[in-house]
Design a binder for these strands. Structure first.
Lengths: 110, 110
DNA sequence: AATATTGTTCGTAATTTTACGAACAACAAA
DNA sequence: TTTGTTGTTCGTAAAATTACGAACAATATT
């Protein structure tokens, strides 16, 4: 008993909203798409793809990291970023169940 | 020729980010879940579900409407809201293709 | 005409987001 | 030790978000 404790997923609004919020900017979508098309890459590679300052790129990366969608690893003097596989799949699951939740319908208006 | 013009979908970052941004707040997720579980309902029903002022609810509904995820229809003196089916499916498609886009991978770091 | 119901809009305040240059930190190379 | 490379952090400014009460609009009802 309790053997599935670490598998339990609560599809709470806060978690889904946090994932969605992190995806709520074109630049961050671009970063995620870029990282999702690779195994990993360095900060500089990401910065090269974008027409914005490194400070802003770093800021967007921090938000994606805080939301759990990506992770960074120091490889002095560079920093390697990649998709956080576990949370990426969790997010995918959240969005999937969310968009499929309209199957059962009913009227609430009289 | 050109017969599929109205079917073409561009999976651009701006559109996906706009959908995501609209979903980037727990209250709006709650509203969407509620509407998705029904065929439609009135503003008052939505307001009843939430512990916030009607002004704020109205504001959130406006954002969801602007993002295209829901639609409102006046049924004097009430206002009936429902999921915008077309855009809901479009959003679903956008998120699906986004999360599946990591299939093909490559290295960018040397 | 006065009153009640239903939501939107207005005005406002506090917070968050977005973006940038400059300064900084950590390390490698000259 | 000085210089160069790579990114983060700081400070700041402008804009957007979030939330609320009050006022308003539109329509029924009394």
């Amino acid at each position: 008993m309790d053997s599935c404790k670490n598998k339990e997923i609560t599809f709470d609004n806060e978690t889904l909203a946090r994932f969605a919020k992190a995806m709520g900017h074109p630049t961050r979508i671009e970063i995620l798409r870029f990282l999702a098309s690779l195994d990993s890459c360095y900060f500089g590679d990401i910065h090269n793809e974008l027409p914005i300052s490194k400070a802003t790129v770093s800021q967007h990366l921090k938000e994606l990291k805080d939301a759990g969608l990506i992770q960074g690893e120091i490889e002095t003097p560079k920093v390697k970023y990649c998709i956080n596989q576990e949370n990426w799949e969790k997010a995918q699951l959240y969005f999937e169940q969310f968009f499929h939740s309209q199957q059962v319908k009913a009227f609430c208006c009289k």
